[in-house]
Design a protein around this nucleic acid. Structure first.
Lengths: 344, 344
DNA sequence: ATGAAAGCGCTAACAC
DNA sequence: GTGTTAGCGCTTTCAT
């Protein structure tokens, strides 16, 4: 089935068929209908490769994830569904526009980034690329894409520069979680930050700090940083509890670290939420199954990716001018969240 | 960067470069080296679209999943990592061969299957397709692929016919799980089967039946069927417990149903594993977090998909002759598994 | 062992 | 509004 056969069938030129396919101008409605009828009857679908070849779009959006972390997540089977949520938002929205989403894993820290990504770009020639942390702020990557003139979205990035910046309300989410704890009577609220190479780590800290400050509370000794791993959460949890006898709540910057903090607390005989409340970030599936289940800031990954795809396709290469797009996260309350213990 | 520039740079014809790229014959080692040097230096990577256009392979393997079920899993965020495991096995193995994996969701039960899948095939022109249950045994789909001459793998399917059949040791796994329970002293072992439209449902039943028979045990009243949903597991669990006072173990054909059976048992005051042992199928992430964690047959999805990709690429369109490929599943023992209660 | 020519299916640019 | 022409980057013949 090629465009030629459709043209013959409809008794028109290739070009007219092409115009119909691409919703081009200068086709009489009547003609359009006739051609469309042939297309439908013959079950014709244009070849992506041929469309790409003739200089038009490739109809492919490429989503890029951190290779090492993603593979580790898959192998460990901890239920992290980041990729699934990306696919949910990305594939469906791509499909809506007649695009396809492809997923690619790219190493961050090695020096081959350019070669690795460059090769993928050359092979696939995607119409748009979606970068996720920590790639979103990798200069090598953003520069490569800018240079090659590939529109891209940066999830978890706010900087000016090229590419569409999108965030998931990190600062507000942290602020809101903190405010909720304060509302429940908590005064000493510890915070386990993510690693510094993720900008969102510091945004979350900012939100927490702001809420504490607004409530007239001090943050001294209440901040620890981890690297998103369970073990770093154990370490941070211990440090916070060691240092603060009066600690009554902890906000962790992801689920693994917060689960670790939960384990530390329970090891020390603290009851959650009676003695200690916990709020996590991410809301991956497993937090519903801890004892008690963890309250968590839900990251709207699917929607963010969906918005990114929409923008990428709508922009068609024109630069994005509207500043950072923020898709708000929300707090899912669960049993790990309770009123502050009486100041006995 | 096109093949032309490489040819000029190396001072050879386009053809020679093409031969080097494709490991073709009739190139002197010396020439090959020279061209490869140019390729490396210029960072040339052939365009997938152009390769496809000129009649050769598309270097794309398409993995097809059930649309409704997959989207439901993603939305519900129950931690089902089937797609992730497919990607783990599929993407990495594709990459090893210079291929890409694309994921596509296809509706099973509607009559548009042919149009829907046909359109995808026409657009993408994949070099191979991987079918997962229940698509693996959908005649409309297999016939379409056969007709279009697209090599495909059928996961969870044994029939003769076109396509490479692959299974995950369903019968043996069920048999082994049953034998393990018998070894632990269990005599009355209930089985919750999956829905009939999945062949693997009956294979698993067969394995259980065979093990029971070999041990001289009867199966009467011990079989219930669900549809893989939690609620169907609740129903089946109740029926089994209602009917069999002496029931001491249940094997469920997937995690959701087995978790439901666990809840039913606990609702009735049964302690697991003291009063009732449970073994599940799938071993998705959440079974580690139930109380107690569920012993489960681990489905080697990643490896199975990896094998499928390998075969698909190796065969290059020649028919597969070696019969069903079986990738063995294994039992992961967890706290839901214990000795049978004393026949007090 | 290498090169030249033809064409894959489509769209852009131009003609009418 | 519609048709014609050229060419995208590559691999396939086929010549040499």
């Amino acid at each position: 089935m090629t465009i030629r056969e459709v043209a013959e069938d409809a008794g028109v030129s290739l070009q007219t068929v092409s115009r119909v396919i691409n919703d081009g101008p200068n086709v009489r409605p009547q003609m359009r209908e006739k051609v469309q009828a042939s297309i439908d009857r013959l079950g014709y679908v244009p070849s992506l490769a041929a469309q790409r070849m003739s200089g038009s779009r490739s109809y492919i959006i490429l989503a890029i994830n951190d290779r090492e972390r993603t593979i580790a997540d898959w192998r460990e089977r901890q239920g992290n569904d980041w990729v699934d949520q990306m696919l949910l938002g990305g594939m469906l929205t791509c499909a809506k526009h007649g695009y396809r989403m492809m997923v690619e894993l790219v190493d961050t820290h090695i020096d081959h980034v350019e070669r690795e990504l460059g090769a993928t770009i050359s092979a696939l020639q995607p119409d748009g690329v979606i970068l996720t942390p920590p790639h979103s702020e990798n200069r090598q990557i953003t520069q490569l894409l800018e240079l090659r003139n590939i529109p891209f979205a940066r999830i978890g990035s706010k900087g000016e520069g090229a590419g569409i910046p999108l965030t998931m309300g990190d600062e507000n989410a942290a602020r809101f979680a903190t405010e909720r704890l304060i509302e429940l009577g908590h005064r000493r609220i510890g915070f386990i930050a993510g690693p510094a190479q993720y900008s969102l780590s510091s945004w979350r800290v900012d939100g927490w700090r702001a809420a504490m400050r607004d409530a007239g509370l001090r943050c001294d000794g209440l901040l620890e940083a981890g690297d998103f791993s369970y073990s770093s959460g154990t370490h941070a949890g211990r440090a916070l509890l060691d240092r603060n006898e009066d600690l009554s709540a902890i906000i962790g910057s992801n689920d693994q670290m917060t689960l670790a903090a939960l384990a530390v607390a329970q090891d020390r005989g603290l009851r959650v939420p009676r003695d200690l409340s916990l709020i996590s970030f991410d809301n991956t599936p497993i937090v519903r199954f801890s004892q008690p289940p963890l309250a968590a800031i839900d990251q709207p990954i699917a929607e963010t990716v969906s918005v990114a795809v929409d923008r990428l396709i709508a922009l068609k290469g024109q630069p994005h001018e509207d500043g950072t797009i923020d898709v708000a996260a929300s707090l899912v309350e669960r049993a790990s969240l309770g009123p502050a213990p009486d100041p006995a």
